[in-house]
Amino acid sequence: MSGESINLKLKVWRQNGPKDPGRFEEYQANDVDTSASFLEMLDVVNAKIIKDGGEPIVFEHDCREGICGSCGAMVNGKAHGPKDKVTLCQLHMREFKDGETLVIEPFRARAFPVLKDLMIDRTSFDKIISSGGYVSVNTGNACDANSIPISKENADKAFDAATCIGCGACVASCPNASASLFTSAKISHMALLPQGQTEAKKRVVQMVDQMDHEGFGHCTNTYHCEGACPKGISVENISRMNKEYLKAKLKG
């Protein structure tokens, strides 16, 4: 299954810590096998950097299966690279042409400070979740799982919203660095299920406030986020969040 091999020029953002201003550095990636993944290509580049006495490019990754949400960078201006609906770890080098130059930079947002090179700190997302993205049900309190039927349609929609991997591509690709798609996916997931109803009002208000508090921008309905989302989460969720929010504020 091995593919052809191509040569690429990489312009990679290097930044030594949150305070370092950072700069681009150029690397040559030669004989890249087109069936390698993007991260495997970076592994090979890194191995060479280390051999040459340098420090490897830091990037976050773990599962390399497109599910943990760790990886992510802007490749030629697009979150997770040019291909739709894949994470960076699932982007393969067959998407690129021999001789191309790739500009690789971190996801940029005030709420995602750069830790090093391409690695960013996304704890702001966790804070949004901890502000209300849950059902308050303590262990042992549950009734039989089948005692509350849920229409398949709602269950499927809730699932689609819940597939968010929290990678931050929505923020990265939003002209306003808004976290609306992320936040609304969780709000939708819960709002669509009977289990989520009791705390629905409190949840939406607290999560939206937290999103502002973390320093994310607001949504201007450009829908860039949906295009960049590796899981194809729909902007319908943002619409649902807006409605839930209005409901919560009007009815108090």
Binding site: N76, E105, R108, H218, G227
Partner: peptide, 26 residues
């Protein structure tokens, strides 16, 4: 103003991933 603050630092390259055009929006 909020949006400019929210980005923090600017991208060297920034493109729209979405199929949907966003010229009028932007």
């Amino acid at each position: 103003i909020n949006k400019i603050k929210a980005r923090g630092s600017n991208y060297a390259k920034f493109e729209n991933h979405a199929q949907k055009p966003s010229f009028s929006a932007r």
